[in-house]
Design a protein around this nucleic acid. Structure first.
Lengths: 160, 160
DNA sequence: AAAATAAATGCATAAATATGCAAAAAACTA
DNA sequence: TAGTTTTTTGCATATTTATGCATTTATTTT
């Protein structure tokens, strides 16, 4: 799907560079071979929960949610990818395996993102059960996880 | 100065209600007897660091910095009220008493909110000095604290 | 207090963003 | 796989927001 790829690219670009307008983002994407219109970007940014905040030096910048912003508009994101070992599907639910003792904090992080796709989580010691909301497909949950934890699937695949 | 009053009103309104457009904010302000143009609002919002983020149900909402956002655009605040023992005024400054050892982290939290009213803070072990910005009254600082820490004054009053 | 300097504001408009609608693409079903 | 439904997208445009410039208001200096 073209859209998923685009969403990921948008998040990556926004995280790494200071993007001031949608037109600017449009060009960056084009540079990566991803082509769309400003209208589509506007919709995608909404879906990703991306906000537009005043930048310290003048102008504005786009910024991902689930971040902690201070009055300078600077943000950061905790990286918890390395603790995740595996992601499998079962009975329409999602099971995430972590390294021992890390299920709870990982689930807490996932909950904290408040993603629409996820109705709730249950965590043991090294296993998390993710309950998708009604009407949300497993594929959508995968996409959702990829958004929360960029590169996670790739990471799991290569470490196997 | 008219501007300070307006900035405070903007923060208050944005904190308490879901504001979708600058025009909407304009009307709310007019209702409070504060009159200006959209152009001025745009400039003020920038100065306050107010961002525009997608709202969960569709549409957008303005949001102060200092908040932790999740992807639904909902914000929440850590509750640190219980560590605060007393709030008194002295020489146009504000003195906050905390339980021992908690002044520093409380001050850090207050600083982090980036409130316009507060020029800066100094913390010892159980005492914080809040220096209001020029032109800001003690009453306005009280209101500001009530916004940062809802219910704080009530809590102190009842525990005495 | 008058003059000089800086800050704030409105007006008009440019710039940027969101959205209704129709078409195209993708996903699903029988 | 042909038909049906859902999702995604572009186009055109309405809506919303930012800003240059001139003017007013406030602040500072002499």
């Amino acid at each position: 799907m073209q859209k998923t790829k685009r969403l990921l690219a948008i998040e990556k670009i926004i995280t790494e560079e200071k993007i001031t307008t949608q037109e600017e983002l449009l060009k960056k994407l084009k540079g990566k071979g991803i082509d769309c219109t400003q209208a589509t970007l506007s919709r995608n940014l909404r879906q990703l929960g991306v906000g537009r905040i005043p930048a310290g030096n003048g102008g504005y910048k786009y910024s991902l949610p689930e971040k902690i912003r201070n009055s300078e508009g600077i943000s950061f994101k905790p990286n918890i990818v390395p603790v995740i070992r595996d992601i499998v599907e079962a009975k329409g639910l999602m099971v995430i395996k972590t390294i021992p003792g890390n299920a709870s904090n990982t689930a807490f992080f996932i909950d904290g993102t408040g993603r629409y796709e996820i109705a709730g989580t249950i965590a043991g010691d090294d296993t998390i059960l993710i309950i998708p909301r009604d009407g949300v497909t497993i594929q959508q949950v995968h996409t959702c996880l990829e958004i929360i934890l960029p590169g996670i699937h790739e990471q799991i695949k290569t470490s196997k």
